[in-house]
Structures are given as structure tokens and as C-alpha cells.
Write a protein that binds this DNA or RNA. Structure first.
Lengths: 245, 245
DNA sequence: CCCATTCCGTTCGGTAACGTACCGACAAGA
DNA sequence: TCTTGTCGGTACGTTACCGAACGGAATGGG
């Protein structure tokens, strides 16, 4: 599986060279250079654990074309996604606000390339470069808004709408029309049954918005998907966009 | 209504003198004195608007015995509670991370006493006193954890469990066994039907955990309520407690 | 090439919660 | 005192989703 993931990556080098991280892009040139110099580029396969609750944050990750999921784990083991982190953000930044401990289980949801930086160096760079710290804080502020919207979304919207939103957000972040994802995983992220996802996904496929097969989704009609998604998609993207002024 | 609220306050002066705010309590003596000197004490009646989305944050509020609700408003006007802020926290602090704009509708859910401080002075004090800023950041970090738990809770737990949790959290924050609250309002906060709350509340009353009548709830058996609540109650209180070390 | 595994289509009965509605009881103001 | 509005009990049919399960089909490792 590792090897396969590696092959996929190599076969898509052309898109990868375009991949970038919004936070890094938004830094002033000199700060950006200073930060970039310390970054390490890594390719992470599906399901790589990023943080375990209660552990120290080892690295912060800037996704390029992969996606990281942060999930809440209930006592009975049920997992549910709290937020996804892609090119628009960074994982581990909330450690800045406290003691550098991770509180939520965090792992790679879509394999891809990431920049990473040890948490200690990240803290040091934030202390040294105001614009970096400011950008990270804006991102955390966006995170609060996004999670506020997700609380409403999880409570009020239908499964098929939330699936459409999830696929759209993923599509935005991976820069590819196709990505690996099973109904099972999607169901866990959304906190619904796998069968529920199968039915809703079949509807979206019927409508020509997507196609999928055996752990692989393809976005066929983005505009159609946008119509099928709940208002939360736009609200969340706007929460991120507002911080890029 | 204003006058009635005023009377209630006066009649409970004995508990009010004990009321305090955890964030303020946790400040080192000198910083605390400096901050306290700038605070204004206000009594806010039910439903006072604290922030409107898109407006500048005028004041930050430190609740003493009242409760502030932050809600997400959907396009169709449906509201749903994102987080409640009581003695353990502060409202408006997230403005520190960005540009001082409010993004969510915020209002007084339980009338009571609050300290308040203009946002500008708050920012200045945070810049000047490291321990204040650190405490506020820890609180924001807790907020992220709490919201993460709420996302799971809203998706996975039953209405009666979530009602029990809401009542427990309120009970912790108001320092009184009785508080004003209608089924209607509770239903809105939880994102369910009023009738659903009525049924679930009747169950909790039957079980001897609470009693209520015409816009007034009374906690009768706290331990019983804790048994009826979901695990999220403990998880959330722990997220706050962890930052008080 | 075969086999174990993964993935997804589909079904079943069950149920928590929905939207809507009506009504009685109480409270507050005129 | 009467009226008006708020509050909560209750009921109806409806529905989105649940939990569990079975089975076919594609996949990839041995």
C-alpha cells in the first residue's frame, strides 16, 4: 500500500509542482524564505497518525495536496470528524495557544505531500516573525468559525448535503478530480452509517455529480455538487477566505 | 421585564458577592489588580445582544453568574448554540486572534452580572500583561476542544442526554438551583423541536432530576442529572479544568 | 492463478425525531 | 376583572436515519 501510494504520487508530479500552502503563500517574502528554509517536505500515506490525544505535538504540518482529519473519539470508540485541514491551513497550530499538547486524534485522510516543521521551531519562528504568528492566529480564528458552522451543520443538514460538502471541500484541497476514499471512511467522518453514505452517494452519482468505485471518488460535475451541498460549504470557505485579505 | 430582572438580582445579593470569574481569579495578584481597575460591572437582562455578526466587538465580557450564548444562524433563520460562556470564560476573546470583528450572534442567555471591558483596552492589557494573554489563549484553546466535543455530541447523542448536559453546565455557572429558561429557548439552542424538549424534560422531571414550570427550571437532583447526561459533560468540563493548572 | 479481503449494493424492521397543530393553564398588563 | 400572550402537554402522520445483516464483485497479495 505504501508503494502504491508512492506510485500515485510520482504519476502526478505535474500537479504537485503547482501545489502550495495558502499560509505559506501569504507570508511576506523575507519571512517566507526564513520559514521555508526550515521546512521538511514529506509524503504521507493514508492513515498516518499525526497526533494522538495527550501526546506532545511533535511537528506542525502544512498540507500541500493532502488532507488531514481531526476527529473526536467517543468512549465507545466512535469517531467523528471535527475539521479537515488542507492547503488553506496548518495542523498543530492550536498548540501555540496552550502547552503544545495534542487533544484530538489527528491523521492523514488523503495521502499527499506536506511540509513539516518541529513544533519547537514553529513556536520559535512564530515568536520571531510577527507576520507568521498573525497569519496562524487568523487561521485559528477561522477554525473557530468553521467549527461553529460544523456544529450547526451536523445537527441540521441531511446526510447527502453533508456528503456533497465534504467532497467539495476535498476537491478544493487536493487539486485533483479523483481521490481515494471509501464509503466506510466517509460514513465515519460524518457520523452516519456506511449504508447511509452508499445510498446518498448513489444519488449523487445518478445525478451525474460524481462517480466512484471501490475506494475511489471522482468529481464529475462540480457545479452540480455545489447545488447539492448545504449552505455550510460556502459559509466555511468564506470563513477561510475572509482571512486572506 | 428589566425591572423584574433587577429585583431578582437584588434578592440574590448574598450569592452574587461570592460570584467570580475563573479567568480573573487565575491572574497573578498585580495583573489582576490592574485589570480589575478597568472593569465595569454591569447587570444584563435576558436576551441582551452582545455581538451581531459582522460588527466590531465593542466590549469583552467576563460573566460572573450569567450565561452568554454564541449561536450560528442559518440562512433560513434557524439558530443553534455553538457554545455557552459562563464564569469559566470570556466572550469576545477570539477577536484577539483576528481583526476584532464578531462573526457569530452572541447574546445573554441567563440574566446576571458581568464585568466588561472595551475591546481596545482588552487588547492593550493583553499586550501589556503576558499572564493575561496566556490565560486568554488557554481559554481559546479550551474553546476549540469544547467545540470539537460539541460537534460529536450534536451528531451522536440523544436529545434527553443533551438537555441534561445543558442544564448541568448552566447549573455549574449560575450558582443557583433555579434559573429562567423555557422549553422553546432550550429547543432552539439544541437544534430540536420544542415538543421534543417538553417530552424529554418531562422524563427528567419524572425521574426526579429537575422540576420546571412556565419558564423556570430547577435542578433537584444533580447526581441524577449527571447520570442522565452524555459523556460530553465530563469531557467539556475537563477541557476547561485542564487549563486551570 | 487463486484466495482472502475489501468494498459497496441492498434489504429488513425499528425508532428517534420531525412538522404541525390544538388546547388548557397560567401570568401579566390594561 | 378581563384580555392577551406565553408556556407547555399532547397527539398525529411522516421521515431520515439506525443497526444488523447478507451477498456479489472487484482487488491485490501470495
Amino acid at each position: 500500500m505504501f508503494y502504491v501510494a508512492g506510485k500515485r504520487m510520482r504519476s502526478e508530479v505535474s500537479t504537485l509542482t503547482l501545489a502550495s500552502n495558502h499560509l505559506l503563500d501569504a507570508l511576506p517574502g523575507d519571512v517566507r524564505d526564513a520559514v521555508m528554509r526550515e521546512l521538511e517536505r514529506v509524503t504521507l500515506p493514508l492513515r498516518t497518525t499525526i497526533y494522538e490525544p495527550g501526546e506532545r505535538i511533535g511537528y506542525v504540518y502544512f498540507p500541500l495536496d493532502g488532507i488531514i482529519s481531526v476527529v473526536t473519539v467517543m468512549r465507545d470508540g466512535t469517531q467523528i470528524e471535527v475539521v479537515t485541514i488542507g492547503r488553506e491551513g496548518i495542523s498543530g497550530a492550536q498548540g501555540l495557544l496552550d502547552d503544545g499538547m495534542a487533544t484530538a486524534l489527528t491523521f492523514v485522510q488523503i495521502a499527499g505531500d506536506y511540509y513539516r516543521l518541529s513544533f519547537e521551531r514553529f513556536v520559535a519562528l512564530c515568536a520571531r516573525y510577527g507576520p507568521l504568528r498573525a497569519l496562524v492566529e487568523k487561521y485559528l480564528s477561522a477554525l473557530l468559525d468553521v467549527m461553529a458552522q460544523s456544529i450547526a451543520c451536523n445537527r441540521l443538514n441531511y446526510v447527502n448535503q453533508r456528503i456533497a460538502r465534504w467532497l467539495l471541500m476535498t476537491h478544493d484541497r487536493v487539486w485533483r478530480d479523483e481521490f481515494r476514499l471509501t464509503h466506510e471512511v466517509l460514513a465515519t467522518m460524518l457520523g452516519v452509517r456506511r449504508a447511509g453514505v452508499s445510498i446518498a452517494a448513489a444519488g449523487l452519482q445518478q445525478a451525474g455529480c460524481i462517480s466512484y468505485s471501490r475506494g475511489r471518488f471522482t468529481v464529475v460535475d462540480r457545479t452540480g455538487l455545489e447545488g447539492a451541498a448545504c449552505e455550510c460549504y460556502a459559509a466555511i470557505e468564506e470563513a477561510y477566505a475572509r482571512r486572506r485579505s
